[in-house]
Amino acid sequence: MAAIMYWEALQRAQDEEMARDPLVIVMGEDVGVAGGTYKATKGLYDKYGAERVIDTPISENGFTGLAIGASFIGVRPVIEIMSVNFAWLAMDQIFNSAAKVRYMSGGQLTAPVVIRSPGGTAHQLGAQHSARMEKVFMGIAGLRVVTPSTPKQAYGMLKAAIRCNDPVFINEHELMYNMKGEVPDGDYFHPLEGSEVARPGRDVTLFGYNISVHWCLEAAEFLATHHGIDCEVVDLFTLSPLDRAGIKASVSKTHRAVIAEEAEAPVGVGSEVIAIINEECFFELDAAPLRVSARNVPIPYNHKLEKAAIPSAKDIVHAVLKMFGK
């Protein structure tokens, strides 16, 4: 086990899979000669060449469609979309081609592409570079959606996604590429379905994914220290399909739930998780579940406004205290 950064974990996963299988390719804007905007493809161009590490034109729908077409006959493309905001431009090919081709061909074709893209609000990037789009992707039948919260997950999920026969969207975060964490030394494949308990607890479950797992952990520490509330933190590393069994198991244990999502509340992870709680374990609840979400605004440039738009560990603490009547 070595502690490496999130971007290094992604780089290592791609390097290993490219070394193993000559049909694994990487494509995207500036992934080659420049080594990737977030360094996730650093060094791969020199090692594998321009045929396999492809600097694309700024044509998101075009190059995503090209990767999907290549995947029909055995190529395993890893597409980097520089910012998830640009994925809207590729949405036609992701939604209409990759996610549907297996079904509408009666199982004859599949599009085993991996689409990696950072979403989330970073630092004052403005309305068109701060979107959180996981809510859009998780509603698409035929597409797997995962969102690693640690370097270990990033490494293991990317490796599993490259080998998986379904199209997989990996939702990353611009603020997490330099996060450090332990990653197994040998081949490691992280499941693409399920959830995991990031911190066990008895009193309330905090559900998070990607960056909000870390807010939940921070809030849990604070609540344990200052209020004697023992939070369980569940990492929903898979957004599609959501882990119904994992959600049910934790809520059946703690009887309370708070969902923390960086995106706006409408049509989001929070509303989905609450619906699942209703369907799976409503009578286990001791309090109405709450969600901690972003305000429903385009993300502003001004740093104070930006901060106010996005939830934080403090907001999670407030939600839990409110739930406990404190």
Binding site: G62, G65, L66, G69, I73, D92, N96, S97, L109
Partner: peptide
Amino acid sequence: MGGYALVGGPFPLAAGIAKALKM
């Protein structure tokens, strides 16, 4: 490799199939 109903959708898919054939 199929009929697709979004007008223009197959253009990049065809290029991708060509990319795979070339590889």
